[in-house]
Simulated scan of single mutants.
Amino acid sequence: MTSAYCTVLSKGRLYQAIALFGSLKAVQADAPIFTLCMDQDTYDVLQAMRQDNVTLIQMSALENEELLELKRTRDQSEYCWTVKPVFLEFVLDGHPELERVTYIDADLFFFADPRAIFDNQPDCSVLLSRGDIVIPSFEKQEIDMLQRLLGRYNSGFLSFKTDSAGTDCLRWWKERCLEECKNAPGEGKFGDQGYLDYMSGLFPNVCDITTPGVNIGHWNYGRHTFSWKDGRLVLEDGSPLIFYHFSGYRIVTAGDIRQIHETDRTDLPFVHQLYQDILKRVIGTVSAVCPEFSGFASEDDNK
């Protein structure tokens, strides 16, 4: 094992995480995924599901006095974001054979092998996903303001090599998140994400991902069209759609799967329907294995 993926997961995203695991296995069968379970329900369900190549880590293995103190002062989103770089460093410390560790959000879904991302930029110590906002219905002034508040990058997918630049950058990110990780957009800071803007100015070999088809989501799908070609999903230039970031989904019931960022749109890309159909199957599978578990969101869960 020279490369691994990591995710931080709570019960409200468990259905999406299982969809993520299945999608990654379909395109990279041997991909190891280290999963930090933020609650006991998440750990118990995933243990019962016996996901191939998924290593489960309980919070008790990670939490120390400093984290437990922060846990008392930060909401659930803030605490999940806080522990992301801590968890990446934890995995690297326990697996010195790793040459790369990549963080993936639970609401990603892979359609093609992501190893092309790393193969295309082998000299980069850190790989960041641009979060450029492209929403046709927004005025330029609105977009510029959002970009300043949310940052230039999206923290749902970022990768660190275990060279000195990569580990130094990861340690710096961890220290910043421990200092402050607020669930409130602000210029230069937003959760764990705003700090990504500063990495390239502080560390060498920090690169924007240049491979197309990476981390497309509600903030930028307006610049793309999707179609099937030879049995795979491709972009307008024929490049494969490697993964889509289905941010903003709330699963209220098996029959009520909502996209809270696009409530007034009726023309979402067809990949959303594919994803919703997969989530419904996942919910059925989890219910069959763990009938008492409910990972459904509440009606007012719009964070």
Rank of each mutant, 00 (worst) to 15 (best):
A4D: 03
A4C: 02
C6P: 00
T7N: 07
T7S: 15
V8M: 05
L14M: 08
Q16S: 15
I18H: 01
G22C: 06
G22L: 03
A31V: 06
A31G: 11
A31S: 14
A31E: 14
M38D: 03
D39C: 11
D39E: 08
Y43M: 02
D44C: 01
V45K: 00
A48G: 00
A48Q: 13
M49L: 15
Q51C: 15
Q51L: 14
N53W: 08
L62Q: 02
L62V: 11
E63Q: 06
N64M: 00
N64A: 00
L67F: 13
K71Q: 10
K71L: 06
T73S: 12
T73K: 15
T73E: 09
R74L: 15
S77N: 07
S77R: 14
S77I: 15
E78Q: 09
Y79N: 04
Y79D: 03
W81L: 12
W81N: 09
K84G: 01
P85D: 01
V86T: 15
L88D: 02
L88S: 05
F90R: 04
V91K: 02
V91G: 01
V91H: 00
L92D: 03
D93Q: 14
H95R: 12
E97N: 12
E97Q: 14
L98E: 04
R100I: 04
V101D: 00
I104C: 13
D105K: 03
D105E: 10
A106M: 04
F110E: 05
P114R: 05
A116T: 11
I117G: 01
P122F: 01
C124W: 00
L128R: 02
G131H: 11
D132F: 10
I133M: 08
V134G: 05
S137V: 12
S137K: 13
Q141I: 12
E142V: 11
E142N: 10
I143K: 05
D144Y: 05
Y153I: 01
F157Q: 06
D163S: 03
S164K: 13
L170F: 10
L170A: 12
L170T: 04
W173L: 15
E180N: 06
K182W: 00
N183R: 09
A184K: 15
P185T: 04
G186N: 13
G188W: 09
F190Y: 14
D192N: 08
L196K: 02
Y198E: 04
M199W: 08
G201T: 12
F203G: 06
F203Y: 07
D208E: 14
D208G: 07
I209S: 01
T211N: 03
T211W: 00
G213M: 02
V214W: 01
N215I: 02
H218M: 11
H218S: 11
H218V: 15
W219D: 04
G222C: 05
R223N: 03
T225Y: 06
G231Q: 04
L235V: 03
E236W: 11
L241G: 09
F243A: 07
Y244M: 13
R250G: 06
I251Y: 08
I257G: 07
Q259A: 09
H261A: 07
E262I: 06
E262F: 14
T263M: 14
T263P: 01
L268E: 10
P269M: 11
H272L: 09
H272Q: 13
Q273I: 09
I278W: 07
L279Q: 06
T285S: 10
S287V: 08
S287W: 00
S287H: 15
C290R: 04
E292K: 11
F296H: 08
S298Q: 12
